[in-house]
């Protein structure tokens, strides 16, 4: 059954490489949307629409690649990933809405930027994944 292990390892390597590729493409398209739309073509609506369309399409490809990577993981790793994603999703919803409410009721001296939420998601995901890895050691 060693062939099964090798097959899974190969699938995982391919899935990881594809996720890296689509993530890089999505990030580049994000930069194109922001810098292109504000600096290079601030008056060209069609280019703005085109760049945001490309950004969304590449984002969807990245999500698909992430799904494929999760499918290539083994059962324990998949459970750890799914639990971490579930906690991250829940905390993002709760903290994100509380953060937005703080801004609405003027208890926060700065704007509720989406980038703070993205950073919160990333940190939460990493911390919960580390806790889940430790739990099963």
């Amino acid at each position: 059954m060693n062939a099964l292990h090798e097959k899974r390892q190969a699938q995982r390597q391919i899935a990881t490489r594809k996720l890296g590729m689509w993530t890089a493409a999505w990030l580049i398209s994000q930069a194109i949307v922001v810098f292109g739309g504000s600096l290079a073509w601030p008056e060209a609506t069609s280019l703005k629409v085109l760049s945001i369309g490309l950004n969304i399409a590449l984002g969807l490809m990245m999500i698909g690649a992430n799904r494929n990577l999760i499918k290539s993981l083994d059962e324990l790793e998949r459970q750890q990933q799914l639990e971490s994603m579930g906690i991250t999703l829940g905390l993002t919803l709760v903290v994100g809405l509380a953060f937005s409410s703080l801004h609405i009721i003027k208890l926060m001296p700065f704007d509720a930027e989406i980038s703070y939420l993205v950073m919160f998601m990333g940190i939460t995901y990493l911390v919960t994944l580390a806790i889940n890895k430790k739990r099963f050691q």
């Binding site: 059954m1 060693n2 292990h5 083994d74 059962e75 324990l76 790793e77 099963f136």
Partner: peptide, 28 residues
């Protein structure tokens, strides 16, 4: 782990009773 196509961490967690394997893994 290599024989049944899972990670070493999975074998360790199963042995310690911290993780219940799937049916295909149990059959393997």
């Amino acid at each position: 782990a290599k024989e049944i196509g899972v990670s070493r961490q999975t074998i360790n967690a199963i042995e310690k009773g911290k993780f219940d394997p799937s049916l295909p893994t149990a059959f393997r």
